[in-house]
Write a protein that binds this DNA or RNA. Structure first.
Lengths: 219, 219
DNA sequence: TAAAATTTTTAGTTTTGCCTAAAATTATTT
DNA sequence: AAATAATTTTAGGCAAAACTAAAAATTTTA
């Protein structure tokens, strides 16, 4: 299915809104896309005629199977590019979204599969969101805060909540990156700090506050 | 200057045609872009009003200084992406052009500078064309066939003419890549084969035929 | 349940980038 | 230099994707 950039943006936005509400309505999509309700109606007709949407006038709409698959392809591209920008080009997390928003429309399947392999088939993007696989399957992650990770259990760093330069400085010091393998060895009850082991690094201790801002997922 | 994809494509095409002829004319650009002469005239007016073009009705046109700079930015993006696709994703040379054609319109200067650094500031793309630097400067390369490289002189592999799987197999065997540093140690007059040294690899011998299909540039 | 408020759709424009056909201009022949 | 040919521009339209304003449908409220 060949889609215009605009169609792709609509599909992705509808997918996102669907995550929260059963039926999406015109006004909320208009607000989300920062456009007019009339423009939404126009596009809904188009997507319906392309058989991507279940749409009943005045009653709201929802992507059908085909539409959902398209949405997942777009999201896959977006999140892979975000991963690339952070992991390979060293860009900061706040900056990558807008660039990925453009890159996601480049529609060569071969490109995306090669990029995926090049990145080492990441399961999660720099914001901690899961990356759909080539079939559109999303793994559901048992994501948690490092502080809550059971002792001795291996996990992967997925994101951090506090993306300030100060946080970055500290993560850098510890050598903690998105995708780093991590394990809690010991907790100090006195102040809540944790002794941790990051793969390829010596053991070290991190404060409870820091550990509350680092997200990991079960491995 | 914010340009649409279409405007960028016109600018790039005009730049390419300018390389060959003093003044570009409507019909040749129409043929190049596979579109109608009337469409060309439309766009010429637009680019003129944006002060990117020197255009006199019926007499042909040419990019002005600003237009040339824009063209070089687009070409820089295109060639960096081509380099990325080949060098990092391992795509084949014939396939990368069309994909780079899409990627080149993503217009974040920071992205491009980071990509450039990530690739090691390549001077030449996988087709052997020079990559303009961030100021738009193009180095002029003394490109030559490996066979003609003076002995003991360091050079960089820029491209190969024969892009078959068989050629790729052999290059792979030798560990020759775009960007590899290479030097000729000795030539065997009997059959024209060359003893060469590729940086980071042991010395080896390559046939004269192969050496005639490998392009290098002076370092 | 009727009136008011909200939401959604329709109708009519605009801009961009393309098209074809016809007119205008320049170049080439004879 | 006049006629013919080629090139280029203008004129008028079309489709996509947006907009505003107004009409229609639904929901809320009194």
């Amino acid at each position: 299915m060949k889609l215009s950039q605009s169609e792709e943006n609509y599909i992705k936005s509808i997918y996102n809104l669907q995550e929260k509400t059963e039926k999406v309505n015109t006004n909320s999509l208009a607000a989300f896309l920062n456009t007019s309700a009339a423009s939404i109606t126009d596009m809904l007709k188009k997507l319906t005629s392309k058989k991507l949407l279940e749409y009943k006038k005045y009653y709201g709409f929802r992507l059908n199977n085909t539409g959902n698959k398209e949405a997942l392809k777009i999201i896959r591209r977006h999140r892979l590019w975000e991963s690339f920008l952070v992991a390979k080009l060293g860009m900061e997390w706040e900056k990558v979204h807008d660039i990925a928003e453009e890159l996601e429309h480049v529609s060569s399947p071969e490109l995306i599969e090669k990029l995926d392999r090049f990145l080492g088939n990441p399961k999660i993007d720099p914001h901690g969101d899961p990356i759909p696989d080539e079939k559109g399957k999303i793994i559901l992650l048992k994501q948690m805060v490092l502080k809550d990770l059971p002792m001795k259990q291996n996990a992967i760093v997925s994101s951090v909540s506090n993306q300030t330069p100060e946080m970055m400085e500290m993560l850098n010091y510890y050598g903690i990156r998105i995708g780093s393998q991590i394990k809690v060895l010991k907790t100090f009850d006195f102040d809540g700090s944790l002794q941790i082991k990051i793969a390829g690094k010596p053991e070290c201790v991190i404060s409870g506050i820091a550990a509350q801002n680092i997200y990991v997922y079960d491995n």
